[in-house]
Design a binder for these strands. Structure first.
Lengths: 339, 339
DNA sequence: CTGAAAGCGCTTACAG
DNA sequence: CTGAAAGCGCTTACAG
């Protein structure tokens, strides 16, 4: 297969490369007749512009990078879905990388994406990321960047988030409203902002409703997965016999807890009520179905790309980029794991 | 920020661009002293080669494309995970697209990836794909391609699959071995090869064990999701009162069925046994935990990229590409939804 | 060991 | 309306 180039078309038609190029791009200063001729020939030869050359000239790759902590994760895969759909609509392709919650990997991947000269970067931070120099490096390169969900307040870029503190407050309040008095919290690791915020929301709700905060009721789930939920619930049953409610940082953890309670003959929600967080579709499939907070992953993906797109466009036009932080709505979903 | 180029380094050092380029790539015909000097200066300026120019010269993008029917899916997200990890190790980035089970979208996305001049393509077909001309087009372009899981036997490329028919046979036999006599099958749509193969495995197992095949026990789940499982199970209960076993095409469908049976007071596995397919981790979290067939998604991803990598390397060296089809092992996982 | 030169395939400012 | 020419930033065959 010989590659079809502008030169090829020009030779076939006996005109210049310049004219061919302009004809294909519908420049106004080419005659209709020539345009028609060129387009026909291009079609006949199945001409596809060489993107490598186009990239080099235009200094654009029409490609964006995305870094998430994990791909195999209900929430992040929904975000990915929203991002790639939206990107495709606007003519962008998405390179996806996964940091595995490792700050070093995250750093390397940022470097990779910058070397690839992607037009923009979207990122949700690893739980262990405290040093933000690699993120500031992106901004120094003047590469548009949008952070979502797991963000750092210290980085000066656009963000798409939910109000974790408030949502956790609503979740905890729902437990209180339905009669719980001793409410445990299965939280995430100490560092990530969303883990901190959800914890603070939990604590605030207790305080506002006259329930004393008891740190022995807070369990840390380092990896925020199913097994962590199983372990925390098992430990909880050993430590306490008066707990009547659990607020888990995420549905996965809550589902692990329900599994343990089901097996030990503890009735949910009669003996212990459980609140999750995220509204993963599986939450409605388990028994009892899980009350939770709806966190709009797909929408977050769509909004994240849209914001990035706006910045890329502004940059191209040489306009000043106005940073934005959008807070998406969450909602309380009542099901059968709470009264 | 001024871009740092080879020219920049050359000027700073008072030598030629050629020598700078060769020094950075450790050509043997550059003196050690010059190399050291060049490398130092490159480091000082934080030089990054312009990939657009490199791509244009080398005709390689060091990028591969991946098309899956759905991203938000336990099996495919595991495959994605395996692919991007493996690709990163070999210095490749992965552009991910989702066909949404649409054959037209799949076609467009193939075109997109070819226009982007990715070095290779990995694809799992949409359920509706019957026309394979877009896949043959990839091969005509001499772009290496590997198909996985949802494949077409008609396309002449390398493949990574499991033996769906045999695995379904094992699943059905397990139901028979544990005492089931009237076994329903919740199958997928009529077209996809894996849906056909699992159905055939089910049918063969019945026949081999003296159980008459009854087409009224076969329900079609067009989208193979949770809701389909709920619907099929609901319909099954209306149509039959003697069924004592169900083999579902995938865990998601099985979980929908379990939900219905739990709600209607039908005991699993005492009244009806259920087998899933895939071994999604949630299968062990529900009550009762689901017996299933383990389908190695992560491993499939790793193997798929490795095979593609081999072909890309062969192509680069001008060697002949030897096509391969690898069949990965599956395993019966016994849990509490079967006796 | 070093470097001038051609070329990858395109875009676009400029001249006519 | 058309086209010659420069240039994007790199690589590499070739000459010295």
């Amino acid at each position: 297969m010989r590659e079809v180039t502008l030169k090829q078309i020009a030779e076939n038609l006996g005109i210049s490369i310049t004219t061919v190029s302009k004809a294909l791009k519908d420049y106004p200063d080419v005659s209709k007749k020539t345009k028609a001729l060129v387009k026909e020939e291009a079609k006949r030869l199945n001409y596809k512009p060489n993107v490598f050359a186009v990239n080099l000239r235009t200094k654009e790759s029409k490609t964006v990078g995305l870094i998430v902590p994990e791909v195999v994760h209900h929430f992040f895969s929904s975000v990915i879905n929203g991002i790639i759909e939206q990107a495709e609509k606007k003519g962008y392709l998405v390179i996806i990388l996964q940091s595995n919650e490792s700050s070093e990997l995250e750093k390397k991947q940022i470097d990779l994406l910058i070397s690839k000269r992607v037009d923009g970067i979207m990122i949700s931070l690893a739980s262990t990321t405290t040093d933000i120099s690699h993120l500031n490096y992106v901004l120094e390169q003047e590469t548009p960047m949008v952070m979502f969900d797991k963000i750092s307040k210290l980085v000066d870029c656009s963000k798409i988030i939910i109000n974790d503190r408030e949502a956790a407050y609503v979740a905890t309040k729902h437990l209180i409203d339905t009669g719980c008095k001793r409410i445990a919290h299965f939280r995430g690791a100490l560092l990530p902002q969303n883990s901190i915020d959800r914890f603070l929301g939990y604590k605030k709700a207790l305080e506002d409703h006259g329930i004393p905060y008891d740190s022995s009721l807070v369990y840390i789930c380092e990896r925020v997965d199913y097994q962590n939920g199983v372990d925390a619930a098992t430990q909880l049953l050993q430590d306490h016999d008066d707990v009547d409610g659990v607020f888990a940082i995420t549905d996965l953890v809550a589902i692990g807890a329900i599994k343990v309670f089901n097996e030990k003959g503890i009735k949910v929600p009669d003996d212990i009520s459980i609140m999750g967080f995220s509204n993963w579709f599986v939450s409605s499939a388990i028994t009892p179905s899980l009350s939770t907070i709806d966190q709009p992953g797909y929408e977050m993906g769509v909004k994240t790309f849209k914001l990035l797109y706006r910045e890329m466009k502004a940059k191209k036009k040489g306009e000043k980029i106005v940073l934005k932080t959008k807070v998406l709505e969450t909602a309380l979903i009542k099901r059968n794991s709470t009264k």
